Simulated scan of single mutants.
Amino acid sequence: MTSEHDECRVTIDGVAPALVTLFRRAVQIASEHGRNWVGVEDLHAALANSDEHAPIWWPRVGKPRHTRDTQGGITPDDLEGEVIPLSYKEFRDLVTAWVPGPTPSVGPAQPATVTYEISGPHAEEFRKVLERS
């Protein structure tokens, strides 16, 4: 009797190169935890534990809050000091504020796309879930 595994292959066209590093770290985290698949929790862990992708906007004690609209930019002094703990709602609002507006002169000419292929014993069930999203 052969064992059939669920397989999911995803192709994303139009991502920022920094995401390659982030996805690779998520794969490494999943592997370090004994899994052959990568989940959203691995991506969260990769983002939360990455100095390279650390948000420079995170509020700090005694410092003004920065946004993408901060005049004059963010200086190294702005990144010093203790970060402020945030509630989950505050964290969600902060992450949402990081999303930039249009950048027509940067990146690919076409909008980003995601395609996938699923096979295995639960493929149809997974496909239904994905088509509802």
Rank of each mutant, 00 (worst) to 15 (best):
Glu125Met: 12
Val95Tyr: 08
Arg68Met: 10
Arg35Gly: 07
Gly34Met: 11
Val15Ala: 07
Leu22Phe: 07
Glu4Thr: 10
Arg24Asn: 13
Pro111Asp: 15
Val10Met: 10
Leu79Val: 00
Thr103Cys: 02
Gly107Trp: 07
Trp58Gln: 00
Thr21Ser: 11
Glu125Thr: 13
Asn36Gln: 09
Leu79Pro: 00
Leu86Pro: 01
Leu47Ile: 14
Lys63Ser: 02
Glu125Ala: 13
Glu7His: 13
Glu117Asn: 09
Phe23Asp: 01
Tyr116Ala: 11
Ala112Leu: 03
Thr2Pro: 02
Ser50Leu: 06
Ser31Arg: 13
Glu131Gln: 15
Pro121Gly: 14
Glu80Trp: 00
Val15Glu: 04
Thr2Gly: 03
Thr11Arg: 15
Gly101Gln: 04
Ala97Val: 02
Pro59Val: 04
Arg60Gly: 00
Cys8Phe: 03
Ala54His: 11
Pro102Met: 08
His53Phe: 12
Glu52Leu: 12
Trp98Lys: 02
Gly101Ser: 05
Val27Glu: 04
Gly107Asn: 09
Thr96Ala: 10
Leu79Trp: 00
Glu82Gln: 12
Arg9Ser: 09
Ala16Ile: 03
Pro100Arg: 10
Arg25Lys: 15
Val106Gln: 07
Thr70Cys: 01
Glu4Ile: 10
Trp37Tyr: 15
Ala123Asp: 08
Val61Met: 08
Gly73Cys: 09
Pro64Ile: 04
Asp69Met: 06
Glu90His: 01
Ser119Asp: 14
Glu41Trp: 08
Thr75Val: 03
Asp51Asn: 10
Ser119Thr: 15
Glu124Val: 12
Pro104Lys: 06
Leu19Pro: 01
Gln110Met: 05
Ala45Asn: 06
Pro55Tyr: 10
Thr75Ala: 04
Ile12Lys: 05
Asp42Phe: 04
Val83Tyr: 00
Ala16Trp: 04
Gly120Gln: 13
Asp6Arg: 04
Glu117Phe: 06
Val129Thr: 13
Thr11Lys: 14
Phe91His: 06
Val83Cys: 00
Ala30Arg: 08
Pro111Asn: 11
